[in-house]
Amino acid sequence: LGLPKMEVFQEYYGLPPPPGAIGPFLRLNPGDIVELTKAEAEQNWWEGRNTSTNEIGWFPCNRVKPY
């Protein structure tokens, strides 16, 4: 089972920042694999864990694709 995984195809370094105070941003590099921890199809921002860095944070969902 486990959490859904997504592959990063466009880098994200915190700009634009996540809206409001939902949480810290998650740095993404192309090729990184992100395990989704909070993701809803109608939301533009998802939370996940970058398996390369083990960091957890928020990122724009348009930077990832199904793994």
Score class of each variant (00 low, 15 high):
12 Y>Q: 00
35 E>S: 09
33 I>Y: 05
28 L>K: 03
48 G>C: 02
38 K>L: 10
1 L>I: 15
19 P>E: 06
58 W>I: 04
50 N>Y: 02
25 F>A: 15
33 I>K: 08
37 T>Y: 07
27 R>M: 08
54 N>Q: 13
13 Y>G: 11
20 G>A: 10
63 R>C: 09
31 G>L: 04
63 R>P: 01
38 K>P: 07
8 V>N: 02
11 E>S: 08
4 P>Q: 15
60 P>I: 00
62 N>D: 11
44 N>T: 14
56 I>D: 09
59 F>L: 03
49 R>E: 08
36 L>R: 06
16 P>E: 04
40 E>D: 15
22 I>K: 13
44 N>E: 15
43 Q>P: 06
32 D>Y: 00
43 Q>T: 11
67 Y>Q: 15
34 V>M: 02
45 W>Y: 13
9 F>K: 14
65 K>A: 06
66 P>G: 09
28 L>M: 13
56 I>L: 08
52 S>W: 05
24 P>S: 11
27 R>G: 06
57 G>P: 02
31 G>Q: 09
8 V>F: 00
67 Y>A: 13
37 T>I: 14
26 L>H: 00
10 Q>R: 12
17 P>E: 11
9 F>V: 08
16 P>L: 00
67 Y>F: 10
19 P>S: 06
48 G>V: 00
2 G>L: 11
64 V>T: 05
48 G>Y: 04
20 G>W: 04
40 E>I: 06
20 G>S: 08
43 Q>K: 09
27 R>L: 10
5 K>N: 14
37 T>P: 04
61 C>D: 06
65 K>V: 08
26 L>W: 02
12 Y>N: 02
47 E>Q: 14
57 G>K: 04
17 P>S: 10
37 T>K: 11
4 P>M: 15
48 G>I: 01
47 E>R: 10
16 P>R: 00
50 N>R: 03
13 Y>R: 12
13 Y>K: 14
43 Q>F: 08
6 M>W: 07
63 R>G: 04
27 R>Q: 14
12 Y>E: 01
65 K>Q: 08
51 T>I: 15
18 P>G: 02
48 G>K: 03
12 Y>D: 01
27 R>K: 13
66 P>W: 04
52 S>M: 13
66 P>D: 09
62 N>P: 03
10 Q>N: 06
36 L>G: 03
48 G>L: 01
7 E>F: 13
21 A>F: 06
36 L>T: 11
49 R>K: 13
62 N>R: 09
27 R>D: 07
48 G>M: 03
55 E>A: 12
5 K>G: 05
17 P>D: 04
22 I>Q: 11
45 W>I: 02
23 G>T: 12
22 I>H: 10
66 P>H: 07
24 P>R: 09
5 K>C: 10
49 R>H: 06
59 F>V: 03
44 N>F: 15
24 P>Q: 13
31 G>W: 02
55 E>M: 14
67 Y>E: 12
24 P>C: 12
22 I>F: 13
48 G>P: 01
39 A>M: 15
11 E>G: 09
25 F>N: 04
53 T>A: 04
44 N>I: 10
41 A>H: 05
4 P>C: 14
58 W>P: 03
21 A>R: 11
34 V>W: 02
56 I>P: 02
19 P>V: 05
37 T>A: 06
3 L>P: 06
22 I>G: 10
7 E>C: 05
6 M>I: 07
33 I>S: 05
62 N>T: 11
24 P>A: 08
9 F>L: 07
9 F>N: 10
30 P>Q: 13
33 I>P: 01
58 W>E: 00
19 P>A: 08
42 E>C: 07
24 P>Y: 06
42 E>Y: 08
27 R>N: 08
10 Q>Y: 06
63 R>E: 00
54 N>S: 12
13 Y>A: 15
42 E>V: 14
46 W>K: 04
21 A>W: 09
18 P>A: 05
38 K>Q: 13
17 P>A: 11
54 N>A: 11
25 F>G: 13
7 E>L: 07
27 R>E: 08
40 E>P: 12
35 E>V: 12
66 P>C: 13
67 Y>G: 07
14 G>R: 01
34 V>R: 00
44 N>Y: 11
25 F>C: 14
61 C>I: 06
30 P>N: 07
33 I>H: 09
37 T>R: 11
25 F>M: 11
25 F>L: 08
42 E>I: 07
50 N>P: 00
20 G>Y: 04
25 F>R: 07
40 E>V: 10
64 V>I: 06
64 V>C: 12
50 N>S: 07
14 G>E: 03
46 W>I: 09
10 Q>S: 06
65 K>F: 05
17 P>W: 04
36 L>P: 13
2 G>V: 12
25 F>V: 13
3 L>M: 10
44 N>W: 11
55 E>C: 09
23 G>I: 03
34 V>Y: 02
17 P>T: 13
47 E>L: 12
56 I>S: 07
19 P>L: 04
26 L>E: 03
51 T>L: 14
11 E>N: 07
2 G>C: 13
53 T>G: 03
60 P>F: 01
51 T>M: 12
36 L>Q: 00
50 N>T: 03
57 G>H: 00
56 I>V: 14
2 G>D: 15
60 P>Q: 00
60 P>W: 01
33 I>R: 07
39 A>Y: 15
18 P>T: 07
63 R>M: 11
45 W>K: 01
17 P>Q: 09
55 E>F: 05
40 E>G: 12
21 A>K: 08
3 L>I: 11
22 I>W: 13
3 L>Y: 13
7 E>N: 04
2 G>H: 10
62 N>C: 08
42 E>W: 10
67 Y>I: 10
42 E>G: 13
31 G>V: 00
37 T>E: 05
30 P>T: 12
3 L>A: 09
33 I>F: 12
39 A>R: 13
1 L>M: 15
43 Q>G: 14
46 W>A: 09
63 R>K: 11
2 G>R: 14
3 L>R: 08
18 P>Q: 01
37 T>V: 10
52 S>R: 12
65 K>R: 15
32 D>P: 01
52 S>C: 09
54 N>W: 06
62 N>V: 06
59 F>H: 02
38 K>E: 11
26 L>S: 03
23 G>R: 14
66 P>S: 09
19 P>D: 09
15 L>C: 10
33 I>Q: 10
52 S>A: 11
55 E>K: 12
11 E>F: 06
6 M>R: 07
16 P>I: 02
42 E>D: 13
28 L>D: 04
58 W>A: 04
36 L>A: 06
28 L>W: 00
2 G>S: 14
61 C>W: 06
25 F>W: 12
20 G>H: 12
7 E>P: 02
45 W>D: 00
34 V>L: 08
51 T>Y: 06
3 L>D: 14
34 V>Q: 01
51 T>P: 06
10 Q>T: 11
63 R>V: 13
27 R>S: 10
40 E>W: 08
18 P>W: 05
45 W>S: 01
44 N>D: 14
28 L>Y: 00
11 E>M: 04
9 F>M: 12
2 G>I: 14
42 E>N: 09
25 F>Q: 06
33 I>T: 13
